[in-house]
């Protein structure tokens, strides 16, 4: 028997909105420690990794670990039926082929149940090694979304270069070139608005705009985003979900032209 209860369904809605752009379906691995999801997009260039800790839920029970393959578009349809302040409960039997989502309104005056068929997904799990990144950038998540959106008008890929002076996002295309520089700022009154850069050595990497734009669909989840980069290692874009866990996107860098 698996049961997880979360007071606000809006967190789940936001997570779904963030990943359903990249993934059509995914398996949720439920264990005593929490719910995990790891999946690559269709082109196998990016990886989505979601972790929701069991202690973040209002009620969590998982007798036996189970994997639930779900179609994310269908799951999003079901969560559209819930109000933002509804309490959501996810339930499944140990070897069931369906999962039940129950939405309860604040005053218990309305309870709705949705049962969804599970899928058998054949997905390989990747072991992600702990890496000491050369650069770790923390910045306001709306700011990062804005930069990606703005720059994607000019080119298909964004060069992110991190130096002592700050971070530079640049791109070029048929129209011309675009550069956005961000310097480190400390805002002690509003911590979520500050930009911090931890740098061991300067790094310059190129990434596909399309993917970065998809990652920024997770912006409503967290006020801050963390970008971690090292040479020849995937970029990690991490959104902390308050009190519950994190959503990480990994993106393989573009192979530089001079290497070919």
């Amino acid at each position: 028997m698996f049961e997880a209860r979360l007071v606000s369904s809006s967190t789940f809605k936001k997570i779904l909105d963030a990943v359903k752009d990249l993934l059509n379906e995914a398996s949720f691995d439920c264990s005593e420690s929490g719910i995990q999801l790891q999946a690559m997009d269709n082109s196998h260039v990016s990886l989505v990794s979601l972790m929701l800790r069991s202690d973040g839920f209002d009620k969590y029970r998982c007798d036996r670990s189970l994997t639930m393959g779900m179609n994310l578009a269908n799951m999003a349809k079901i969560f559209k039926c819930a109000n933002n302040d509804d309490t959501v409960t996810i339930k499944a039997q140990d070897d069931a082929d369906t999962v039940t989502f129950m939405f309860e309104a604040k005053k218990q005056e309305k309870i709705s149940d949705y049962e969804m068929k599970l899928m058998n997904l054949d997905q390989e799990h990747l072991g992600i090694p702990e890496t000491d990144f050369s650069c770790v950038i923390r910045m306001p998540s709306p700011e990062f979304a804005r930069i990606c959106r703005d720059l994607s008008q000019f080119g298909e890929s964004i060069v992110i270069s991190c130096t002592k002076e700050g971070v530079k996002f640049s791109t070029g295309g048929d129209i011309g070139t675009a550069n956005v520089k961000i310097a480190q700022t400390n805002n002690f009154d509003k911590e979520e608005e500050s930009v911090t850069i931890e740098m061991q050595e300067p790094v310059t990497l190129t990434f596909a705009c399309q993917y970065l734009n998809s990652f920024t669909k997770a912006t409503p989840l967290a006020p801050q985003v963390q970008l971690s980069m090292s040479d020849n290692v995937p970029l990690v874009v991490e959104y902390q979900i308050p009190d519950l866990g994190h959503l990480r996107f990994y993106l393989a860098p573009k192979i530089e032209d001079d290497e070919n």
Binding site: H44, V45, E124, L126, Q210, Y250, I255
Partner: peptide, 22 residues
């Protein structure tokens, strides 16, 4: 959308080449 993404993905290594399969 999928096609556009596949196009954007060209020129990158697959992510699985960076991580060990378990």
């Amino acid at each position: 959308k999928d096609k556009a993404r596949a196009k954007a993905a060209s020129g990158s290594k697959t992510i699985s080449s960076f991580f060990k399969k378990t």
